[in-house]
């Protein structure tokens, strides 16, 4: 611990913005950040760019929401009960992903696979509910080409659905990697990225169900 004391005295007391030496990792005095923190930060930046894509789709939907071209309005086609079930599925999925994070930290193979399976099944239920909604709209002739409103709607909600589908494939590979390769640090970092991705999709869904579906039923 003598080296620790010397680190404290060496740290620059006149550094701006910090009271005393900052010995957290990644902050000069504490040495470089861990690979896990760096990987998490890089993936966080990716998620933020992804959220900007969603912001563009939200903006185009908001602009086009009234342009129904004589077709159905939001109020006529949105089914709040189905949206409630979709929301419940995705929230449960996000929670199960959190349980999987704890199981991975405990290095418990059975609990990890079980939690990931629950994550995947609830996510799959969400996708099935959403595709049944899209199929029903298409069957009524209310496809994406019917009006600008429906184009914006299908693009925004469909883009989220594609993300969830890709996430399900990623989830499958994570289960296989934990099973075949065990709890190696690099697999753990991949799973960190997956769990961030999965929770992020739930955040986007909160915006979709509130601002597209629920607001749509009241305008």
């Amino acid at each position: 611990m003598s080296t620790a004391d010397s680190t404290i005295t060496i740290a620059d007391p006149f550094r701006l913005g910090h009271r005393g030496p900052n010995l957290a990792r990644g902050h000069g005095g504490g040495g470089p950040a861990t690979k896990r923190v760096v990987v998490g930060y890089g993936f966080w930046l990716f998620l933020l760019t992804d959220i900007i894509i969603f912001a563009c789709l939200f903006a185009s939907y908001a602009v086009l929401a009234q342009a129904t071209a004589g077709g159905p309005t939001a109020k006529q086609i949105f089914d709040t009960d189905r949206v409630a079930w979709e929301t419940a599925c995705l929230l449960a999925s996000s929670f199960c992903c959190g349980l999987a994070t704890i199981a991975v930290a405990k290095r418990d193979q059975f609990l990890t696979q079980l939690a990931l399976l629950a994550t995947g099944l609830t996510g799959l239920a969400f996708i099935l509910l959403e595709s049944s909604e899209f199929a029903a709209l298409n069957a009524q002739g209310y496809g994406p080409s019917r009006s600008a409103f429906l184009t914006g709607f299908f693009t925004l909600v469909g883009c989220h659905g594609v993300h969830v589908t890709a996430g399900l494939l990623w989830l499958g590979t994570m289960m296989a990697q934990f099973y075949a390769k065990g709890f190696r640090p690099d697999i753990g970092r991949r799973f960190l990225c997956f769990s961030m991705f999965w929770h992020f999709l739930d955040v986007v869904w909160v915006a979709i169900f509130s601002l597209v579906y629920l607001v749509g039923t009241r305008l």
Binding site: T3, A4, I8, G31, T34
Partner: peptide
């Protein structure tokens, strides 16, 4: 956070 030489423990991070 305890302060110790961080350079060599990147393996078990």
């Amino acid at each position: 956070m305890t302060a110790h030489a961080h350079g060599d423990d990147l393996e078990h991070e």
